[in-house]
């Protein structure tokens, strides 16, 4: 019974995560300017990847496989924002201006 429940939960996580990945990709295609697209990449990097990996962890159980999945997740959580930040800073240094709705000096 518990096994089946875990199985169902892991399928939900896996498919939900894949849907979030697809949504993020659509966002990358749909958003109007470079800086907005970065937010869509964040969706892929965090919730999409997290849910897929968590779903696989539930399938793996308490084994070395799960440890490796956790390591993959750990690397993604730390390298994802760094890569996004590097992209944003390089774009700003090269003089790419963001589209702003109602600019404020804040």
């Amino acid at each position: 019974m518990l096994d089946m429940l875990l199985d169902i939960l892991s399928w939900i996580l896996l498919l939900g995560g894949a849907l979030f990945l697809l949504t993020g990709a659509i966002g990358v295609l749909r958003f109007p300017d470079f800086y907005s697209r970065l937010h869509a990449v964040s969706v892929c990097d965090t919730l999409g990847a997290g849910m897929v990996l968590l779903g696989l962890m539930l399938q793996g159980g308490l084994t070395l496989v799960t440890v490796k999945l956790m390591l993959i997740f750990y690397f993604m959580v730390f390298s994802g924002p760094t890569a996004v930040h590097a992209l944003a800073e390089a774009a700003q240094v090269s003089g790419l201006d963001p589209v702003e709705d109602d600019p404020e000096d804040g």
Partner: peptide
């Protein structure tokens, strides 16, 4: 702090 800002979708630390 900077990484947390970037990690949350909707905000990205630029510089």
């Amino acid at each position: 702090y900077a990484n947390s800002i970037t990690l949350v979708p909707g905000t990205v630390t630029v510089s």
